[in-house]
């Protein structure tokens, strides 16, 4: 079985700290910036980043959860439909800077759907994308992230397996695995 560890708990912590510093470089005190985690796993990452940013800045950071299921372009085209998750955006994003957060960027189709889903909550002044793992050379859409935890060269036969403690696993581990060995 091909299984390669991309990030473990310690490295993940270091990576998130670095991403937070990069966010602060661009967004300062976060007065006009909100963060939106993408369902299902981006929300855990968004929560961790929010906690870290709040302790660094001593400032409340508006955080929401966005589910793009109803905006996907593969509805009726995939064998089993994806199950929808909760969307919880308790603020209006009109004229705000939005940082979208997701775990893995692959084809970019989820992010495209999320950009669409986001417009229900207003017109942001700017949107940026933060991903933990960027799978290079695999995009179907002209979408590129501004903040990247780790760039990985992958094949279509592989997938990135994200295990975070919030889902009930013992440790944080992010693996690159062959699709058939889930």
């Amino acid at each position: 079985m091909q299984k390669r560890l991309l990030l473990d708990s310690k490295l993940l912590d270091i990576t998130i700290s670095r991403l937070c510093q990069q966010l602060i470089e661009n967004h300062g005190e976060f007065e006009d910036t909100v963060i939106l985690g993408l369902q299902p796993k981006g929300i855990f990452l968004a929560e961790r980043i929010k906690t870290k940013l709040e302790s660094l800045l001593q400032n409340k950071i508006q955080t929401g959860q966005l589910d793009a299921t109803f905006h996907r372009d593969d509805f009726r085209r995939r064998v089993t439909p994806l199950k929808a998750n909760t969307t919880n955006v308790p603020f209006i994003i009109e004229d705000k800077k939005v940082v979208l957060i997701d775990d893995v960027l692959f084809t970019g189709r989820t992010v495209r759907a999320a950009l669409d889903a986001m417009t229900a909550f207003g017109r942001p002044s700017k949107v940026e994308l933060l991903v933990l793992i960027n799978r290079r050379y695999s995009r179907d859409t002209p979408i590129e992230p501004q903040y990247v935890g780790k760039h990985v060269n992958t094949m279509f036969s592989q997938r990135v397996l994200v295990e975070l403690k919030e889902q009930g696993t013992k440790k944080d581990n992010i693996w690159l695995v062959d699709k058939k060995d889930k």
Binding site: F70, H71, A84, T86, T87, N88, A120
Partner: peptide
């Protein structure tokens, strides 16, 4: 339906599914 209930209480009540 829980998720759609959230959708129909938004200012923009429509999704393109």
């Amino acid at each position: 339906a829980d998720n759609f209930k959230e959708v129909i209480n938004r200012p923009i009540k429509k999704v393109p599914s």
